[in-house]
Amino acid sequence: MRITVNGEDVGLTSDGDTTLLTALRDELGLVGTRFGCGQGLCGACFVDVDGTVMPSCQTPVWQVEGQAVTTVEGLSQDGEPHPVQRAILDRQAAQCGFCISGIVVRAAALLRDEPDADAARVTEALDRNLCRCGAQRRIIEAVLAVRESR
């Protein structure tokens, strides 16, 4: 089975029912996508599949065959962090950071689709990402800062 991951065409030996998350972490060694719940309810494992953000823990690899998957590792360009990542670091908008990969993927997709997203839209877009440390407000501010810095 072949999929495109972060712009690279890769072959997978995992069987089709393996979750995309397990294939990414265990077979491809892309551990930036985190396992949080395995039930599609926390957003830590969000990846972008052909423009749609989905929980990779609930996505069997057969479902993404031939499609383009972007993980948190694929958001940096030429070694430069994605503007959302830059803004999160600039504002120290994280505590433990475990939820951040999925949040970065979700926020990057939002700003790609809606470059002028306001606070309400950002908040709504991130509502399926859980953060337990209480960094939500800092994260929202960081995502909004990306828009303002353009």
């Binding site: 930036g32 985190r34 590792e73 958001l75 990542q85 999160i88 120290q92 994280a94 951040i100 970065v104």
Partner: peptide, 18 residues
């Protein structure tokens, strides 16, 4: 700035499961 955050925000291996 936090010394550990770049790895965590950039999706690098950092946690025990990684």
């Amino acid at each position: 700035p936090r010394l550990d955050l770049p790895d965590k925000v950039l999706g690098r291996p950092r946690y025990l499961a990684d």
